[in-house]
C-alpha cells in the first residue's frame, strides 16, 4: 500500500517537474520532438534508480556512521557524475543499439538536477531502500509523463500565432503553469 501511495504521489500529486521544479530544462528545451521522450525517460529512469541505490548505501554506511553528512553534496555529485560516465562507456561497449536509444541522452543528464535532487530528497525523507527505489522509479515515470504531455502541447503550440515576445520560453513557461494548475487537481488522491 505504501508503495502505491509513493507511486501516485510522485507521478501525479508531487510531480517532479510541475510541483518540485526539478528537471524543467528538458521540458522547456528538448521536448520539441515527441519521439525523443522514451529514450530520455528511459535514460533518466536507469540512472536515477541506480544512483539512488548507490547514494543510499553511501549515506547509510559512510556518511551517517562517520558523522560526515556535511560532505553529502560533494560525494553525491561525484557518485552521479562517475556513474553517468561509467554507464556511457559500458553502453558503448556492450550494445550499440542500446547506446543509440539511451546513451545519447546521458550527457544531458549529468547537469540535470532531478538525479541529485532525488538522491538528496531520499536522504532527507529518510526512506528505506525499497521505498527509495520505488520513489526513484515513480519519479522518472512522473518526469516522462510531464515530458509526453508537454511535447504534445508544444506540437499544437507551434501552429498558434503568438505575439513575438511570447514565443519560445515564455509561452512554454505559461503552458507549464497551466499544466501545473491542472495537476493540482490530483492533490486529493493522496491524503
Amino acid at each position: 500500500m505504501t508503495y502505491i501511495l509513493i507511486f501516485i504521489s510522485a507521478v501525479f500529486v508531487n510531480n517532479i517537474v510541475l510541483s518540485q521544479f526539478l528537471g524543467v530544462y528538458p521540458i522547456l528545451g528538448f521536448s520539441k520532438r515527441i519521439d525523443m521522450v522514451p529514450g530520455m525517460t528511459g535514460a533518466v529512469a536507469f540512472i536515477l534508480t541506480i544512483s539512488t541505490i548507490i547514494t543510499y548505501i553511501i549515506q547509510k554506511t559512510v556518511l551517517i556512521p562517520y558523522h560526515v553528512q556535511f560532505l553529502q553534496t560533494i560525494i553525491y555529485v561525484f557518485t552521479i557524475a562517475s556513474l553517468v560516465t561509467l554507464t556511457d562507456r559500458v553502453l558503448k561497449r556492450v550494445s550499440s543499439s542500446l547506446y543509440q536509444t539511451l546513451g545519447v541522452y546521458l550527457p544531458l543528464i549529468t547537469t540535470n538536477c532531478v538525479i541529485l535532487g532525488v538522491a538528496i530528497l531520499v536522504a532527507r525523507k529518510d526512506l528505506n531502500l525499497m521505498e527509495s527505489v520505488v520513489f526513484a522509479i515513480s519519479t522518472s515515470v512522473g518526469f516522462g509523463l510531464a515530458l509526453v504531455i508537454f511535447a504534445g502541447i508544444r506540437d499544437q503550440l507551434s501552429l498558434v500565432k503568438l505575439p513575438k515576445s511570447m514565443e519560445g520560453i515564455p509561452v512554454a513557461l505559461i503552458t507549464a503553469g497551466l499544466l501545473a494548475m491542472a495537476f493540482m487537481g490530483f492533490a486529493g488522491l493522496v491524503k
Binding site: L18, S19, F21, P163, K164, S165, M166, I169, P170, V171, A172, L173, I174, A176, G177, L178, A180, M181, M184
Partner: peptide, 25 residues
C-alpha cells in the same frame, strides 16, 4: 494564492521574460 504555489512560479516567470523580450524587441 495561486501565485505563491507552483503554477504561479511558471506563469509569473513566463510573463516576466515576455516583458523583457518585448523591451528587447
Amino acid at each position: 494564492l495561486i501565485f505563491v504555489l507552483a503554477p504561479g512560479a511558471f506563469i509569473t516567470l513566463g510573463y516576466l521574460i515576455a516583458v523583457v523580450n518585448s523591451a528587447k524587441l
